[in-house]
Design a protein around this nucleic acid. Structure first.
Length: 585
RNA sequence: GGGGGAAUGGUGUAAUUGGUAGCACGAGGGUUUCUGAUACCCUUAGUUCGGGUUCAAGUCCCGGUUCCCCUACCA
């Protein structure tokens, strides 16, 4: 037996070392570890965010530290309360509980402004009157350095005066900015006198009209982390180039301060984003899908938003499993969509109670039903709710002369390897009886409408018949699901396929809309479900209130939010693995 | 002709930091089975390339290749 050693990714290794060295507090004190998830409240959370959330929350949990949820609300033009609410809801659903109150960058505006004044006083920041275009041109490009702004050497007094007026709303949008005085020739574009504040005369969702200047990301982010005592500021790879600036701003504030007056300096560390095949995490793309009605909203089950996955029936656990599966590295990996699908299957297999439902019904008639007694009789069968876990209990289902079975479980002229119904073939009707086909009917178009079978009274409950006198037991290869015609309930079932046909949507033509799969949604209106699906009582409770099942042989389903007593609606979360479909291709 | 990152089976990810290249998923095959599901077993295939140091290199050194990110008053 080799012992399985839990491997630690590079961020965990770094934190382990920090704790040992006492970088953030007393050596060995793990509880100092503080992380944060800093969403901008301008859109819905998607799968990519879940990776960051789970990393940050998971780290804090592992070390017994703190995890903050902080809204980075530094851009009043795009932000709305609606998004704040949806993001909080998504985190709660994911089980990523944050410590303390929800934080907002806007709570720190005054402090950040005071620090900006300090930089001006130190000669490290200046007000620039150039236009957007002039600033852009002055920045230079990747090969050539930039030009110094003509306003770069304003006096401290003038800069102070101008900043105060900017803050008070004396100027129009775009007429002035506050910039850090760093290096216009830096090979790192972010260091070429980056903007700290711009004028935005617009109301903010929390501070109203109090502010007329708003901080830029690079200026604000590290300070927000510092104020909150964040030790490990984890972000994605594209911010690697920003780290020197992150550090520069904090060092600039600390410049000239005594050690005991220095502000906290968090460690920014970058990891790779999550890329999933056949999807795109671009906020803009998602917005287009919604606004151009390619989907039915942000929570459309085909969307890779947290809301979409939730409605599709995915469990929070499947996201944690996926995060664990893909790991944390600095390599931009493309993860196959089927991997995520496997995670839900795995989770749902263990936790979903079983039911029977027929998606594409044809009628099966037991022609010798009268042999066993009254032709109109109903026999009550007991069925296990889970094949491997008795704690799920049992339910009863009614068996009678007429049943619904799946259209694809009958073939007029089946190949040898087909283990279901066909003339002369016998199958087990799950938890019912064995049935042997001797006839069928079709409509004018040749579609099968009825399958006629005889049943074997010795197989009640679906059990094998007794052995013959030579000790041999008759076997049957296939087992199919069914629903009793008399008490079947009509339901709507929604089947989903991937939204895009291309592995990287939009790669070919530049427009992701060109890669949309026209058949990503299939609505079945005449599915037949067993009546036990109506009864909520006795189900294992799902923490998020969503009812999830496995419909035997057809997949995992959840009851949609559109579902009502008059019309039940189920979404297919994922199909079951189907080696027959693979083989018959 | 700039800067910052990254390359390990088909995919994702490990390797006690110089010491047997392992795990998971997939794929192929088999066993079990009242779900062609699940479970279980077997097989498959890998260190970006070229040099160098060393008893020993995925790991260290030199050089090359490929890919990603950076020129918003977005984050």
């Amino acid at each position: 037996m080799t012992e399985v050693v839990e491997s630690r990714h590079f961020i965990q290794q770094m934190i382990d070392a920090d704790i040992e060295s006492g970088k953030w507090g007393a050596p060995g004190d793990r509880t100092v570890v503080t992380t944060r998830f800093p969403p901008e409240p301008n859109g819905y959370l998607h799968l990519g965010h879940t990776k960051a959330i789970i990393l940050c929350c998971g780290i804090a949990r592992e070390y017994g530290g703190k995890f903050n949820l902080r809204f980075d609300d530094t851009n009043p033009a795009k932000e709305e309360q609606e998004y704040v609410d949806s993001i909080k809801g998504d985190l709660e659903w994911l089980g990523a509980t944050w410590d303390g109150d929800v934080k907002f960058a806007s709570d720190y505006f005054e402090q950040m402004y005071q620090w900006a004044i300090e930089l001006i006083e130190k000669g490290l920041a200046y007000v620039d009157d150039q236009t957007v275009d002039e600033i852009r041109a002055g920045r230079g490009n990747l090969k050539d350095g930039g030009k110094l702004s003509p306003f770069r050497d304003r006096s401290v007094e003038e800069n102070l005066d101008l900043s105060a007026k900017m803050k008070a709303g004396a100027f129009e949008n775009g007429t002035k900015v506050l910039r850090a005085k760093i290096d216009m020739n830096s090979p790192n574009m972010n260091m070429r006198d980056p903007l700290m504040y711009r004028i935005v005369n617009a109301p903010h969702h929390r501070t109203g009209s109090e502010w007329h200047i708003y901080p830029m990301y690079d200026w604000a982010h590290g300070l927000e982390d510092s104020i909150e005592g964040v030790t490990h500021s984890l972000c994605t790879l594209e911010f690697e180039d920003h780290r020197p600036l992150y550090d520069w701003f904090i060092n600039a504030i600390n410049q000239g301060r005594n050690d005991d007056e220095k502000i906290h300096h968090p460690q920014q560390t970058e990891f790779s984003r999550l890329f999933l095949s056949y999807t795109n995490m671009s906020k803009r793309f998602m917005r287009e899908l919604v606004e151009e009605n390619h989907v039915h909203g942000w929570d459309d089950p085909r969307m890779i938003t947290v809301a979409g996955f939730r409605r599709r029936g995915y469990t929070p656990e499947s996201f944690w499993k996926l995060a664990d599966d893909v790991g944390i590295t600095k390599f931009n990996a493309m993860v196959d969509f089927s991997r995520l699908e496997n995670m839900v299957r795995d989770d749902l297999n263990a936790r979903a109670p079983r039911r029977m439902a027929v998606l594409d019904p044809i009628k099966l008639i037991i022609t010798n039903w009268a042999d066993g007694g009254d032709e109109d009789r109903v026999e009550v069968m007991e069925a296990a709710n889970h094949p491997k876990d008795e704690s799920f209990g049992t339910r009863t289902i009614n068996f009678a002369k007429e049943l619904w079975i799946e259209r694809e479980d009958f073939m007029i002229d089946p190949p040898k390897k087909f283990f279901r119904l066909g003339l002369g073939r016998e199958v087990r009707l799950r938890c019912g009886y064995w049935a042997k086909c001797h006839d069928y009917k079709t409509d004018d178009a040749g579609n099968v409408t009825e399958v006629h079978c005889t049943y074997d009274p010795l197989t009640k409950g679906g059990n094998n018949p007794p052995a013959d006198e030579e000790g041999k037991v008759r076997k049957v290869k296939g087992t199919i699901h069914w629903v009793n015609v008399n008490d079947a309930v009509d339901a709507e079932v929604r089947l989903f396929d991937r939204l895009y046909m291309a592995e990287r949507p939009g790669k070919k033509t530049g427009d992701h809309i060109d890669d949309i799969n026209p058949d990503s949604l299939k609505i079945i209106t005449n599915a037949k479900i067993e009546p036990a699906l109506l009864d909520v009582a006795g189900e294992p409770k799902w923490d998020d209130g969503i009812r999830r099942f496995q419909f035997e042989r057809t997949g995992y389903f959840c009851e949609d939010s559109d579902s009502a007593a008059e019309k039940r609606v189920f979404n297919r979360t994922a199909s079951l693995r189907d080696s027959w479909a693979k083989q018959s291709k």
